[in-house]
Amino acid sequence: MDRRDFLRRALGAGLTVAAAGALGLTLYDPKGPSAAGPALPPVKLPDFSLKAQAGRMAVVRGHERVAALQAGFKALGGLETFIHKGDQVLIKVNAGFATPPSLGATTNPELLHELIRQCLAVGAQRIVVTDNPINDPQSCFSLSGIGQAVQSAGGALALPLERYFRPTTVEGARLIRDWPVLHGPFEGVTKVIGLCPVKDHHRSGASMAMKNWYGLLGGRRNIFHQDIHTIIAELAMLMRPTLVILDGVVSMISNGPTGGSPDDLKATGTLIISTDQVAADALGATLLDKTPADLPFIGQAAALGLGRADWRSLKAAEVSL
């Protein structure tokens, strides 16, 4: 009995030593951790642009957004040129502020509603609308009317949940390096449309199609305001959309990007649809009585080969309602 007990204990003690030794030696680390910490696998947003449709643009003059959108797509050969049956479409709106649509600081809900409706009409399988706004996300989507527009049109709203952000490095970029970017809503998405109003912006001069991607950034992103033009150009590197739609039917011409008073708005009667976001912004600048040269980010993006600063060279289809 004593002997059996002893053998059993010897086995137990031996296993304890062996387990501790195996665990210790497996996880033995003679050097210590590196400065960078555990490396995360790199993630990248795909290129959503259609090569065959490069450099296309429609400019609609009129004061009815819904009609303008319809006319614009018609001029480009119909939305089906860009969105095909079965596509999963992500619409990046500007829902930056918890303000009512009448103040024009956010994407117009009627326009969004119409866009979703048309996408579904040409056979899109699923529509996701997202943004990482500046104010509280839930308040932003509900007060701006965007949430309701998405729901009634049959799209899905993707709130910027913390786990949706992944550290991202844009190749060739100086600022977007290992920075949290909103990836979650892009899961399965095949087409991306940027939809935003034309707005004055104190720091950068204007907030338009390219600046709209700022809402994909997470983290303490306001650090980038120290070099606003470079970050806007890099955002255009980060996101190559299928289309951008720049709503200059009413533009915010002062106190941007928040505005706050109807006096900050001006009816500029122009809706721009383009596959070239740089050209769209270059034209949008004129609505704010600025030239592309006043907005260094346009030149920077053009120099990076992301689009054309000379929007006239695109031979846009121009429509007047």
């Binding site: 304890t16 030593v17 501790a20 030794g21 665990l23 210790g24 030696l25 996880l27 033995y28 680390d29 003679p30 050097k31 210590g32 951790p33």
Partner: peptide, 15 residues
């Protein structure tokens, strides 16, 4: 998730 350098001395105590 790791046993840093000199901490392996603890294996002696455990044994």
């Amino acid at each position: 998730g790791s046993l840093y350098a000199g901490m392996a001395w603890a294996l002696l105590t455990i044994a």
